[in-house]
Design a protein around this nucleic acid. Sequence first.
DNA 1: TCATTTGCATAACAGATGTTGTGGAAATGT
DNA 2: ACATTTCCACAACATCTGTTATGCAAATGA
Lengths: 184, 184
Amino acid sequence: MAARGFTGLTLRAVAAELDATTGLLTHYFPTKRALVEYALDLLEQRTLSRPRRDSGRGMAALRDALLDMLPLTSEATDSNRIWVSSWDAALSDPALSADYGRKYAASRDRLSERVAAAQELGELRIGDPAEIAAGAQSFVLGLVVQALFAPAAFPPQRQVQLLDDYLAALVAPDRSDARQSAQR
Amino acid sequence: MAARGFTGLTLRAVAAELDATTGLLTHYFPTKRALVEYALDLLEQRTLSRPRRDSGRGMAALRDALLDMLPLTSEATDSNRIWVSSWDAALSDPALSADYGRKYAASRDRLSERVAAAQELGELRIGDPAEIAAGAQSFVLGLVVQALFAPAAFPPQRQVQLLDDYLAALVAPDRSDARQSAQR
DNA sequence: TCATTTGCATAACAGATGTTGTGGAAATGT
DNA sequence: ACATTTCCACAACATCTGTTATGCAAATGA
């Protein structure tokens, strides 16, 4: 289902995948939009509740959260493909679009907490956590897109390397005593 | 046309927009895929050849190139909406997907040149230009996506601010004499 | 001027899609 | 055990999609 994109998410395809018929779907979802919304919520929830890295605190925790967004495994790649595919439908529908805005805002908020925690530990430069979180989210989001379109050019190792370079630059921006906390 | 997404790019819609009929389109394009390819090439070409910022050299030139990718104007927003919408179709089609990989690789190459130039001027930290370009492209790409879904949260001013913060961190990563060349 | 080709509107077609019944089987309650 | 409701398979539907076929008018060339 990650292969045919979001446009290929048809009632009959879903029913076939489920070994059922369209009758079942129409019985549970009044319209297709409801099914789409449910599918997206399910994807988000599943992504949120999957086994996550949680190895440390401060900068390491922030790094873990960002690593969890990258298509480093085939499952994560599939999820991200579906996610990116769904942007088409989302941009066409203002309500869905707003929903996405909220979801990404929530994600930024979660990142902000880790940013603030890293700052308190002195592992991250001072600055508005929300801004730093927005920047980090942008970086990872864009990396996801590039990795999806050119998997050969962005193998997991390079994705991690790019992220670590980004984080290293984030630690000590201007003048600093060069606290170096880049892992791997 | 930027409103209905890429899925809504139907032959009849295009024909209507063109005050013509499907006969014209089938006469010029053997199949719809050909039309899609043409549309995407046209979009890329138009994006590439539109009036661009070119105010300076070195770091300023790099910044200009990145600013040109952001949805800072309504036209740029429309272009980016179409672009992001098209990712759905592209991910479903391996040939299109590879095409996108090439286009983004070309974009990274263009960025790399500016990165190298900025490095030669001593305005940017040492490092593989290709890596720095890939990182910058990721950052901007992700920022585009976030700005499209939450225009209110990412007004042009904030986009520019985030980009400048990113570039500032890029200038002086570890130990440095803090050459500060952030504009605006 | 006439024959031939080109350019495209119009219509028809097959396939797919979301949606809406209809009917029957299973579950549920009494 | 029976009545009633829930659940869903199946089929029909109207609509929209890309594609193909037909035909006519304008352009083109001799």
